[in-house]
Design a protein around this nucleic acid. Structure first.
Length: 353
DNA sequence: AAGTCGGGGCC
DNA sequence: GGCCCAGACTT
């Protein structure tokens, strides 16, 4: 295909001199690919040098301990990459005699290596014709061929791979993959693509249609759900009740004020209904379950995740006829940036009394 | 299929 | 402030 030749030729004349491009040592290729997952080249470069210096080959890495590796990884983010790096080093050292496997089937079994990284290693280290489909390549292909299928939907992946498998025929696989990513990183950028210097602008359908900036398409993420946690501060004698959360949700196993969750903001007229449910919950805990999950504060820290939690507290005095007072209700809006631990939510409420 | 893991660069 | 980056993994 003509556009492939243009891209590869452009790459040969304009490539950045990056250390992992002047080797086909599978260890160095693999290391660079792990470091560069979701990481820009400029950010990953110094970590690559540090790792190569500290661990010049896979055996030396396999002998390292996890804390040492994590220390070297510090600041890069996505720390499971570092843990998987060590796991794979040990695996390759032990089960593959220190030689990186060279088949798709074997390489995909290694921790931290998915479809992209497997293809990258197989092409860069062993020159096998597997197209590497990363964020750059998704963008280049979607623009070149005006493909408006969302790139974050798994079912569309094969559309891109089919095209790439055609393109990679007859050219050097390593150069092809490098060229596509380099084009995406340096020219066909997310914002302000440099179409004026692009070697394939005359082949590009997005360029022709003037819609490059709108590609690639990503399916909208589902709207964040709001959850409404209606807490009841139920006084009894000198104390009040806490009840344990289950383990399949946020704040796993933490104790909290008895609570009814709703998916909309409750009307004050619903409070009595909720209160009846809460009292049933408490009685069930007290009488049926033997109060295993009742009644004291657990200080373990579990942080709020991405969901937006709206917490409302109702003060109930069980000595009298159950009542609530509006002036004793407070709202706590905890968003993902604030990361309120549950104990702090409860504390805020108790301090406000 | 959706959620999670991060720090940095860019608009 | 939102999106993106040489994605993989768990639920």
């Amino acid at each position: 295909m003509q556009n492939v030749l243009e891209i590869v030729t452009w790459y040969k004349n304009n490539l950045r001199d990056l250390p992992w491009r002047s080797t086909n040592d599978p260890y160095k290729i693999w290391l660079s690919e792990i470091i560069l997952q979701q990481t820009q080249v400029n950010q990953g470069l110094k970590y690559y040098y540090a790792f190569i210096e500290q661990y010049p080959d896979i055996q030396s890495l396999a002998n390292a301990d996890e804390q040492e590796v994590l220390k070297l990884w510090q600041g890069l983010g996505y720390y499971s990459r570092a843990r998987n790096l060590l796991k794979t080093a040990k695996l390759v050292a032990d089960k593959y005699h220190g030689i990186f496997p060279n088949s798709m089937e074997e390489i995909l079994k290694l921790p931290g290596i998915g479809q992209y990284t497997a293809s990258a290693i197989l092409s860069f280290a062993y020159n096998l014709p597997y197209p590497a489909l990363d964020g750059n390549v998704f963008r280049v292909i979607s623009r070149l061929y005006n493909i408006r299928l969302p790139i974050n939907e798994q079912k569309n992946r094969s559309v891109f791979l089919d095209i790439l498998n055609e393109m990679i025929q007859g050219v050097d696989p390593a150069q092809f993959n490098n060229a596509m990513m380099e084009l995406g990183a340096m020219v066909c950028k997310p914002d302000n693509p440099k179409c004026d210097i692009c070697p394939v602008s005359t082949f590009c359908q997005a360029k022709e249609l003037g819609c490059a900036s709108q590609l690639p398409v990503k399916a909208a993420k589902a709207a964040k759900k709001k959850r409404y946690f209606n807490f009841f501060y139920i006084k009894y004698q000198d104390g009040f009740y806490l009840i344990k959360r289950n383990e399949s949700d946020i704040w796993q196993n933490l104790f909290q004020l008895p609570m009814i969750e709703t998916n909309t903001e409750v009307d004050i007229s619903d409070v009595f209904t909720m209160l009846q449910e809460v009292v049933q919950l408490l009685w069930k805990e007290l009488l049926v379950s033997g109060a295993h999950d009742l009644c004291y504060l657990n200080s373990k820290k579990h942080l709020l995740t991405h969901q937006e939690i709206n917490a409302r507290f109702f003060e109930i005095n069980m000595k009298e006829k159950p009542t609530f007072k509006l002036e004793n209700c407070i709202w706590v809006n905890a968003d993902s940036k604030q990361n309120y631990p549950l104990p702090i939510l409860i504390e805020k409420f108790l301090l406000s009394l």
